[in-house]
């Protein structure tokens, strides 16, 4: 919105330009897209976890019966067999990945807007997340 029309509001760091922004309906595209990613990701993960919990309760599995560790190769067979662990793990992975998806959406949005600085920040956040995965895997076991 205002990024495409900066001249008119320059010199207004204390909110004078803010009135103009507030006349525009709804949040800017990027914020709206990111909000959508977060909402969809959160509800999708909660939905998957809820299915897993229902299956878990139906199978009489107690929460303190030591669930299986995450194993990517077991995910599809567990889902196909309607085993609770498959849905639970997929939901948990989706939950943990949703914030990173939000950052990825921000990266794309900022890159499209030509905001290189913010695109670099988003990239660095994703690098830190990737580093977390790499370090955790290297220390696994």
């Amino acid at each position: 919105m205002t990024a495409s029309n900066p001249g008119g509001l320059l010199g207004s760091a204390t909110g004078a330009g803010f009135a103009k922004g507030s006349q525009e309906p709804g949040p800017p595209g990027l914020e709206r897209s990111i909000a959508r990613v977060l909402t969809i990701g959160t509800y999708a993960s909660i939905g998957l976890i809820a299915v897993g919990v229902v299956l878990m309760l139906a199978d009489g599995i107690g929460p303190l019966s030591n669930g299986p560790a995450f194993d990517a190769t077991r995910l599809v067979p567990d889902l196909a067999a309607l085993r609770p662990a498959g849905f639970l793990w997929l939901g948990l992975i989706a939950a943990v990945a949703t914030p990173a998806a939000r950052v990825l959406a921000s990266l794309i949005g900022y890159a499209r807007r030509g905001e290189r600085e913010m695109a670099i920040v988003a990239s660095l956040i994703l690098v830190v997340i990737a580093l977390s995965v790499a370090l955790a895997r290297s220390l696994e076991g």
Binding site: I46, I49, A50, G52, V53, M56, I61, G62, P63, L64, S65, N66, G67, P68, F70, P84, A85, L88, W89, G91, L92, A95
Partner: peptide, 10 residues
């Protein structure tokens, strides 16, 4: 643990 995380998160 998925069996703990699932019910708690819901």
């Amino acid at each position: 643990d998925p069996y703990v995380a699932g019910p708690t998160a819901i």
